[in-house]
Amino acid sequence: MNMTLYAKMLKVHAKSISSYAIGSALYLLLIIGIYPSIADAPGLNDLMESMPESFLAAFGMEGGFQHVSDFIAGEYYGLLYVVILSIFCLMTASQLMARHIDRGSMAYILATPNSRKKIALTQAIVLITGLLIIGITTALAGVIGTEVLIEDKPFEAMTFLNVNLVGILLFYVISGYSFLFSSLLNDERQALGISGLLTIVFYGMDLIGKMSDKFDWMVHLSLFSTFRPVEIARGSVDVWPMITFLFLLGTALYAVAILVFSKRDLPL
């Protein structure tokens, strides 16, 4: 990788990385902040029981919330975390490759004595760095936030960190295919559109599959089936198979992206 390019690209994207990281951390703190009032509310578990089973299952809320980590996992990692990180991965991936190919600025980057593989690898590492910064900031906010804001509530730090680890790896894969489309296509909006559509389809399949027994086969086709924040937070699933699977898949996607970019014609 090329350090000059890496430093410059990180600087260009620093603003968006830090705003996603701060946004995600603040939102998580807000969720943690409202936990005590919800946990002490007498009618909550009754209310949860009155809701349709399938609806609760779709958002991983069946069985009520016993711990603060379950609550955070269900309320934050189940939806908003996914939305925030998806937007970051899709946008940044399309900006790092397809935008430069689309606008022609890639010509300047390639008109230096650096191989295309090296350039693509550098851009991939910029994307992964951003993802890690946002993921780790969020995890830290969760650990510190529960420590400061919650008293006498059981908090499973280990399983909470597992939620974050699997979450980051899920987005390692999502950023991986976004980066692949970004390296493969000449049009920034097309790259963004295709990877966005794929993400929405995956998410939709997971949601429908969980809500309806008839379509439960869909769950297994969706990437999101690897990320069950509430179950991971409760410690009821073994996370290592998912970690291995996501890591290998993500790495393969990035490798293909770099290879494709080094072999193709560029309209610069």
Binding site: R103, S105, N114
Partner: peptide
């Protein structure tokens, strides 16, 4: 040998488009 050749070349593209944000 595209990368190696670039050591010897200076290039001005026909359509000037620089990177944003600098």
């Amino acid at each position: 040998d595209a990368a190696k050749i670039q050591e010897k070349i200076g290039y001005l593209p026909g359509e000037i488009s620089f990177l944003d944000g600098m």
